[in-house]
Amino acid sequence: MSDFLMPSLGSDMEAGTLVEWLKQPGEAVRRGDIVAVVETQKGAIEIECFQDGVLEEYLVDIGQTVPVGTPLARIRGAGEAAAAPEAPKAAPEAAAEEPPTPLPLPVAPPPGAPKVAPAGGVRASPAARQAAAERGLDLAALKGSGPGGAVVLADVESAPAAKPKPKSKAGGLDLDEMRKAIAAAMSRSKREIPHYYLSHDVDLAAASAWLEQTNAAREPAQRLLIGALFLKAVALALKKHKAFNGFYREDGFAPSDAIHIGTAVSIRGGGLVAPAIHDTDQLDLDSIMAKMRDLVARVRVGTLRSSELADPTVTVSSLGERGVEGMYSIIYPPQVAILGIGKVVERPRVVEGRIEARPLVTMTLAGDHRVSDGHRGALLLNDIDRLLQEPEAL
């Protein structure tokens, strides 16, 4: 038997609120299945299961906020016996001659009834909670028509609309709360991590020519962007330079064998997340491009998975599309490096004794001086440059 825990989705997360169960006790689960939805400062995040088995029991009720690491449920592994029911406790000897009046048994809700929050709070279905939040309604002020007086979606829809709270929203995300989370993480980073910075201009003439030739024979939806080449080159270079791929925790630096590149995605209206493209070094360029498009689309509507936020081993951020030619980023702890990529621009460059206009991009590296130094950082940037000169081999 193992515990299904409230995950940590970044150094800025301390707790989360369970908003929905997607699996029922007794139901089989497989690795990668979405078991629950948790509300955090980064929005509603789908929480995955990391083992095969059977969901044995819930340990946390819907609507309850619990710290990171709290067991949410128990999962019985494949081949394990089901937990034996608890034996009834022996009744104490009666102190009086007359037996006590028995309490009425609780009435089970009918099949298909919505899951509701515990009696300690407002009883409401997940759909009702979401609708009430969107309309700015106080659940405690609504009369519930569901089982046990629970507030259901119909109760919210029939209630008069309230004046919405003045909060900035985008794709279901509370941007004010997200900004607080970003501020906390970045403040910690600058306090604790001794940053050093390097920059390097990369000639993209070969990569741009290869990309143009490759895309000429493709439909627009299948065309590659230069960003896919950047991610693959970074991933391949990190296989050699392991000091930039991993996590710095209380017991020191732990390099990661897997390379999960967090790709910074801006949210309309403000805010930023950097979900992971898992095993980036093992993917071809078309797969990387497809995953980039998928992540951007799901960030816009706020449907990310827990592993995508918890797993990045390094982050790549680009403001090239905003016209910025260079950027110096802040490391997101517990990671130990972040690469910034600017806009591709034509600049004069000396090539074989001649001055030519060449497409150049400025790449910057922010490294953690506790783990690496400028010498190693320079080698990393030069290897990324070398890989981009042979785009057909990526």
Results as ranks from 00 to 15, higher is better:
residue 246 G to R: 10
residue 246 G to F: 04
residue 247 F to A: 10
residue 249 R to V: 12
residue 249 R to H: 12
residue 249 R to W: 00
residue 250 E to P: 00
residue 250 E to M: 00
residue 250 E to G: 04
residue 251 D to W: 00
residue 252 G to Q: 03
residue 252 G to Y: 05
residue 258 A to E: 14
residue 259 I to A: 05
residue 261 I to K: 01
residue 262 G to A: 11
residue 263 T to V: 15
residue 263 T to H: 01
residue 265 V to W: 08
residue 265 V to T: 11
residue 265 V to P: 01
residue 265 V to G: 05
residue 267 I to H: 00
residue 268 R to Y: 00
residue 268 R to N: 06
residue 268 R to S: 09
residue 269 G to C: 04
residue 269 G to V: 10
residue 270 G to E: 01
residue 270 G to Y: 06
residue 270 G to Q: 02
residue 271 G to H: 05
residue 272 L to C: 08
residue 272 L to Q: 01
residue 272 L to V: 12
residue 273 V to H: 02
residue 274 A to E: 07
residue 274 A to P: 03
residue 275 P to A: 10
residue 275 P to N: 07
residue 276 A to N: 03
residue 276 A to K: 03
residue 276 A to D: 04
residue 278 H to S: 13
residue 278 H to N: 05
residue 278 H to E: 13
residue 280 T to Y: 09
residue 281 D to N: 14
residue 282 Q to V: 12
residue 282 Q to P: 01
residue 282 Q to K: 14
residue 282 Q to G: 09
residue 283 L to V: 08
residue 283 L to Q: 14
residue 284 D to L: 11
residue 286 D to T: 15
residue 286 D to K: 10
residue 286 D to W: 01
residue 288 I to Q: 05
residue 288 I to V: 15
residue 289 M to Y: 00
residue 290 A to H: 12
residue 291 K to M: 13
residue 291 K to H: 15
residue 292 M to E: 09
residue 293 R to E: 12
residue 293 R to H: 13
residue 293 R to L: 13
residue 294 D to E: 15
residue 294 D to A: 15
residue 295 L to G: 06
residue 295 L to E: 05
residue 296 V to P: 04
residue 297 A to Q: 14
residue 297 A to C: 03
residue 297 A to H: 11
residue 298 R to A: 12
residue 299 V to P: 09
residue 299 V to W: 03
residue 300 R to M: 10
residue 301 V to Q: 10
residue 301 V to S: 14
residue 306 S to N: 08
residue 306 S to T: 06
residue 307 S to A: 13
residue 310 A to S: 15
residue 310 A to I: 12
residue 311 D to F: 02
residue 312 P to T: 11
residue 312 P to I: 11
residue 312 P to A: 10
residue 313 T to Y: 07
residue 313 T to D: 11
residue 315 T to F: 03
residue 316 V to M: 11
residue 317 S to K: 05
residue 319 L to S: 02
residue 321 E to K: 07
residue 322 R to T: 12
residue 324 V to A: 14
residue 325 E to F: 00
residue 325 E to V: 13
residue 327 M to W: 00
residue 327 M to Q: 01
residue 329 S to Y: 00
residue 329 S to T: 11
residue 330 I to W: 02
residue 332 Y to F: 08
residue 333 P to G: 11
residue 334 P to W: 02
residue 335 Q to G: 11
residue 337 A to S: 10
residue 338 I to K: 00
residue 339 L to N: 06
